[in-house]
């Protein structure tokens, strides 16, 4: 169950570096904020993209997220880490966006990185269950996975994205979402059960 422990921690040990950049940005150094944007764009892209499943929406929403973060930076007191703060902004803005967008979503999938061929997870899946998964090519797998994720509610998709894809810990997710760890665990449990049923033929 502790998938996050196996993955690379998203913030590594850069909290101090972030704090310095934030202080410089608060003092009016726009290049310092550019550094923060450069650093967090790939991580937040993954979060927003996996919640919206649309490339254009993700790019537009990310612009809005960083613009809002920049405008609110003066009010950031440093009580939480910058990454928790920016993740909270991202999750809230994405959930608001999804509510406005409703069900009329146009799904556009990103290309799969060629590195997937060497990924241990991908190799294990395609070798351990030869009878089922070998029939599925990468793009089919991507499509099935996205369809399954889009069937989840927004709250469930958010915790799955943060935990399984982004590799955050339960307590970090709880801070970002402003809920208890118990709620995070229960949402994850329910979401995993649903995904197992949607992807039954792939996971057996």
């Amino acid at each position: 169950m502790e998938a996050a422990t196996e993955t690379e921690h998203p913030v590594s040990s850069s909290a101090a570096e972030d704090r310095l950049l934030v202080e410089r940005a608060q003092a009016g150094d726009t290049r310092a904020f550019d550094e923060l944007v450069r650093k967090y764009t790939p991580k937040l892209y993954g979060l927003v993209y996996n919640m919206t499943s649309n490339r254009d929406d993700t790019a537009d929403l990310l612009q809005e997220i960083f613009a809002k973060a920049y405008r609110s930076l003066k009010r950031f007191m440093g009580k939480s880490s910058f990454y928790t703060w920016i993740y909270s902004i991202s999750v809230n803005m994405t959930l608001n966006f999804l509510k406005k967008r409703g069900r009329y979503a146009k799904v556009s999938l990103d290309d799969v990185d060629s590195g997937i061929q060497n990924d241990p997870d991908f190799i294990k899946i395609t070798t351990a269950n030869r009878d089922t998964v070998r029939e599925v090519n990468i793009h089919e797998l991507q499509k099935r996975l996205n369809e399954a994720l889009m069937k989840l509610s927004e709250d469930h998709r958010t915790v799955v994205t943060l935990y399984d894809v982004q590799g955050l810990q339960h307590n970090e997710i709880a801070k970002i979402l402003g809920v208890s760890e118990g709620t995070v665990r229960s949402r994850l449990f329910y979401a995993h059960r649903l995904l197992q049923s949607y992807l039954e033929d792939l996971v057996k």
Partner: peptide, 19 residues
């Protein structure tokens, strides 16, 4: 490898969808 492990491995493949 349990079904649950398989599921997590499949979900983690989402990391390879890059812009």
């Amino acid at each position: 490898m349990s079904e649950f492990d398989n599921l997590q491995r499949i979900i983690r493949l989402k990391r390879f969808e890059t812009p």
